[in-house]
Design a protein around this nucleic acid. Structure first.
Length: 933
DNA sequence: TAGCTCACG
DNA sequence: GACGTACGTGAGCTAC
């Protein structure tokens, strides 16, 4: 042979990573993400690719992956792989990295919808054999053993460097590769849920096939089987065995996704591999690539140690409790001490930090000091912006701010040092303002939120967590800075007091991290923490810094208009009420309506006061009570004026001319963001008058405001999660969902039916009750009950979803979203039916609302990269309103931006999840927010 | 500071 | 049989 025979290596990527995961320690990469399996995979791939043309090494190579959950096998048997447990939480984020790693080696990564990796491998084996090539399948999957053929096809188990040949198959199954499928069909497979025949395991299966020759002969020879139980099982489950035979049969005649020739291996090009290794922090491998590291076979062991050293070590699971000793903290005021702390932090590989400023609003705050912590009671405070306590005293001696920042920068940006903060978004913005990008980082507030959302009634503030986890009372800000009119800013605090306060925060943060970090993986919170919430910190930080432009003059004019109208309404209210009173006082209003005017039907709340909410006033107005109608109008206008047109003007930052809200990542139990100072998530839209306020939110000259919102996202998720075929179909067809519900419920889609159906649909999302629904629909409660019964009858999936969700939360105390986010419900077993009922309704809603929140967060985390990749770096994400994202887009780039934004939002579930419903996104733009809808 | 009311999804 | 609530937020106002 003048030319070498081609030798194709087919790597079964999916199966490899599972095994690597279980056999390697739980390493983390430079970003603090789990990466043990990726590391194992990388070294394996390297070793294979490196043996190009050596001995029995590859000339061609491809990695084969599973593309989709569902294949033709599910058509054949709907229970196929139905009971497979979800992969471990800290493995999930490693799946996408497999593709990245493979691409880094410039090796094709092949996957095909509807086919499992095993089938694609079988197709390539068939084609390669036909071309006269040799094939090695890199896997140890028993199903693939059917393909082995000595001299042409073998398998390689890289975990123990073992070649699998016909002899190995004979040893394992007692039959040749061509009969492996028959043996598998009899024994079944509990992992893939292939039924097989009950009572038959590997031993019996082999023995039967050996005795009778093949599966069909076994099934035809039951009369010769003496054991009565076995005989009966074979007769009863003959069809299961035949079904199983089809399930384990590999497809080998499908079209190749990539032609054989394209799989030629060309050695290992240095790029992009170097970039990948660098990114992951696989330093030994990187050194090896650069020809400076350990050679050859020692790389595996050395590499693992190296990964450990390059990243923060996993903290001990039971951190020792050491009493907080504030006198141990150090005030750093000279360069030598600062250098010492930075050097030690760099060596240690992790450091907790906290910034002190003169203002709670990080957008306008000035840096006053930075604290660092390296261990319990081992913490320091570096003042940089303290002034004297009053006009007469001088500023204390401290290092210049610029010097400290210059020295801190290498540490804060060092990819090998993990920065740990509590509510790190604040610190991230503070450093971003001076051009320092803090990374990598952990945020103990987010960790606490992702572990314990709903567990404690209050939030996830540091002081509170210190009390909860360490029974420690932090020095309160109040005792340092005072309160009310006498409150001073932190820069006025004497250094000794400031050190105690600031260093304690860093100290507690580090202690908290040591306690929470091990729980993240152990309690299956790593996917949400690492893939959803943590990546959002810089994304939100940038949005807050950008702010949104608000037209002050326009708002001022609106305020004046409203004021005139309010004054006129006031007069008319007094007239109708036979005398002046404080309209804004519900108490006085109640007395006026039900006592002075003697109106009937006053409903009293639990405090004994008359209810004067919008429902009551609407009712009275409907009965022709002018006063009620006037008060309603008055309320709407005063609300708009005080909460929006007046307050918003005061919120405009004089330097930027824009309004900078603060988004809270841990504010809402369900995983939603919340917005405050000011809240930009409740700007009016529902009434025409209110909508005018939206017009005050404008784009910078040369830009347009673009709004993209998910259409009916919660109902879509409910249709998917509760598996309601009619609703899923309606969404796939783009039909009007409320009409479709109306048809099912009332057999008609007239206006009234549609409105009722809409109310019912929302009632479902919020945890339905017949009383609540009846009240809201304004029908007798037995009719409400009838509608609900009808709903459950037409959509049985809904009832199952509710039953299952409630059973789960009662058993576990928490619910989970599709992405695994937990929300705890401490009241779910309350003996008080009202409290318990509330918890139940919230628990039914949480997975839906929470999954929607996860989805838009995933889209946000990917958005900037997608825009940059599309050459749209001028597009800026400004606001999030639960199912809507608002952007500022350069004039003329609207269409392009809309396409990218739409795609990122619609695909937000993938690749982690395949939804049964499309996620439609509606996009609009204009000079102001009001015109973008 | 609590409770009411109301703006949003 | 009685519940008298739709789920999740934040903010401004009045009255205590």
């Amino acid at each position: 042979m003048s030319e070498q025979q081609p030798h194709l290596y087919l790597v079964d990527g999916s199966s490899y990573i599972f095994r690597a995961y279980h056999r390697l320690p739980p390493l983390t990469n430079r970003h603090g993400q789990p990466a043990g399996a990726v590391y194992g995979y990388t070294t394996m791939l390297w070793k294979l690719a490196d043996s190009l043309n050596k001995g029995d090494g590859p000339t061609h190579m491809a990695v084969i992956l599973d593309a989709s959950e569902s294949t033709f096998r599910n058509e054949l048997y709907d229970q196929y792989k139905a009971h497979r447990p979800p992969p471990p939480e800290d493995l999930v984020p490693q799946f996408p990295l497999i593709r990245v790693a493979t691409r880094a080696f410039s090796i094709p990564c092949i996957e095909e919808a509807g086919l499992e990796a095993d089938d694609i491998i079988a197709c390539y084996v068939t084609a390669a054999k036909a071309a006269g090539w040799k094939v090695t399948i890199v896997s140890s999957d028993k199903d693939l053993m059917q393909l082995i053929e000595d001299g042409r096809v073998d398998m390689l188990d890289t975990m123990n460097d073992r070649r699998i040949t016909e002899a190995t198959v004979q040893e394992k199954f007692g039959v040749g590769p061509e009969l492996v499928g028959d043996v598998l069909a009899l024994m079944g497979d509990s992992v893939d849920n292939v039924p097989g025949v009950p009572g038959i395991g590997p031993k019996t299966a082999t023995q039967l096939i050996q005795q009778f020759g093949n599966l069909e002969k076994v099934l035809a020879s039951t009369d010769q089987i003496s054991k009565p139980k076995l005989k009966q099982n074979l007769i009863d489950h003959a069809d299961d065995a035949r079904l199983s035979r089809e399930l384990v049969r590999l497809v080998c005649d499908s079209k190749l996704p990539e032609p054989l020739e394209d799989l030629a291996l060309k050695g290992i090009p240095k790029e992009p591999l170097a970039a990948f290794l660098e990114d992951q922090g696989f330093k030994t491998l990187l050194a090896r690539l650069n020809g400076t590291g350990a050679t050859g076979r020692s790389s595996s062991g050395g590499g693992i140690n190296d990964v450990m050293a390059a990243t923060a070590p996993t903290p001990p699971s039971e951190p020792e409790v050491i009493a907080v000793d504030r006198s141990a903290y150090e005030t750093v005021t000279d360069e030598g001490a600062l250098d010492r702390w930075i050097a030690e932090a760099t060596t240690q590989g992790y450091v907790a930090l906290d910034t002190e400023t003169d203002c709670i609003d990080c957008i306008i705050a000035k840096l006053v000091g930075v604290s660092l912590a390296l261990g319990p009671n081992k913490a320091c405070y570096i003042p940089v912006g303290h002034s004297g306590g009053d006009l007469l005293s001088e500023a204390p001696s401290q290092l210049p701010a610029q010097l400290v920042l210059d020295k801190l920068r290498p540490l804060l940006e060092n990819e090998a040092v993990l920065k740990i903060g509590h509510n790190l978004k604040y610190d991230w913005v503070m450093f971003d303002k001076v051009g320092i990008c803090v990374a990598p980082f952990d945020d103990t507030m987010l960790m606490s939120f992702d572990l314990d959302a709903g567990r404690s009634l209050a939030g996830h503030g540091l002081d509170e967590l210190a009390k909860q986890h360490f029974d420690h009372e932090c020095l309160a800000f109040k005792t340092i800075c005072g309160t009310g009119a006498k409150q001073i800013t932190f820069d006025k605090v004497p250094l000794d007091k400031a050190t105690e306060y600031a260093a304690e925060d860093a100290d507690i943060t580090l202690r908290l991290w040591k306690r929470l970090k091990p729980r993240i993986a152990a309690e299956a919170a790593s996917t949400v923490y690492e893939r959803v919430d943590r990546p959002l910190v810089p994304v939100i930080g940038r949005m807050e810094r950008r702010g949104v432009k608000v037209d002050r003059d326009y708002l001022a004019q609106l305020s004046r208009d409203f004021a005139t109208e309010i004054a006129s309404l006031e007069e008319r209210v007094y007239e109708a009420a036979c005398g002046p009173f404080t309209i804004g006082s519900p108490q006085q209003l109640g007395q006026v309506l039900y006592e002075r005017l003697g109106l009937k039907g006053g409903r009293k709340g639990k405090s004994g006061a008359y209810s004067t909410d919008v429902n009551e006033l609407e009712r009275l107005a409907g009965e022709g009570v002018d006063c009620a109608r006037l008060v309603l109008d008055w309320r709407q206008l005063t609300k708009l004026k005080t909460t929006y047109t007046d307050a918003l003007q005061a919120q405009i930052n004089p330097e930027t001319g824009r309004v900078h809200t603060s988004f809270s990542l841990s504010g809402a139990q369900t995983g939603r963001l919340s917005s405050n100072d000011p809240n930009l998530q409740n700007i009016p839209i529902r009434t025409e008058l209110g909508r005018k306020i939206r017009d005050a939110f404008v784009a910078e000259p040369g830009y347009q405001l673009l709004s993209a919102d998910y259409s009916q996202i919660e109902l879509r998720l409910a249709a998917h999660m509760a598996d309601v075929p009619q609703l899923k179909e309606a969404f796939r067809e783009g039909a009007d969902i409320h009409n479709r519900t109306a048809e099912e419920l009332f057999g008609s889609t007239d206006r009234d039916s549609r409105n009722k159906a809409k109310t019912v649909n929302f009632a479902i999302l919020y945890g339905i009750s017949s009383w609540g629904l009846a009240g809201r629909l304004g029908v007798p409660k037995d009719e409400g009950q009838a509608i609900i019964s009808r709903y459950f009858e037409r959509f049985p999936g809904i009832r199952n979803y509710m039953d299952e969700t409630l059973a789960f939360v009662r058993a576990n105390g928490f619910t989970r979203t599709l992405f695994g986010r937990k929300t705890h419900f401490t009241n779910i077993r309350s003996p008080n039916p009202s409290i318990r009922g509330g918890a139940e309704r919230a628990a039914i809603n949480a997975p839906i609302q929470g999954t929607s929140a996860d989805l838009i967060k995933r889209a946000m985390a990917r958005m900037d990269r997608a825009l940059v990749d599309a050459g749209l770096e001028g597009v800026r994400m400004l606001l999030q309103v639960h199912d809507e994202l608002v952007f500022e887009v350069p004039d003329g780039r609207e269409e392009e931006a809309a396409a990218v934004i739409k795609r990122v939002m619609s695909d937000a579930a993938e690749p982690a999840l395949k939804l049964d419903v499309p996620l439609d996104v509606e996009v609009g733009w204009g000079a102001h927010w009001g015109a973008a809808h």
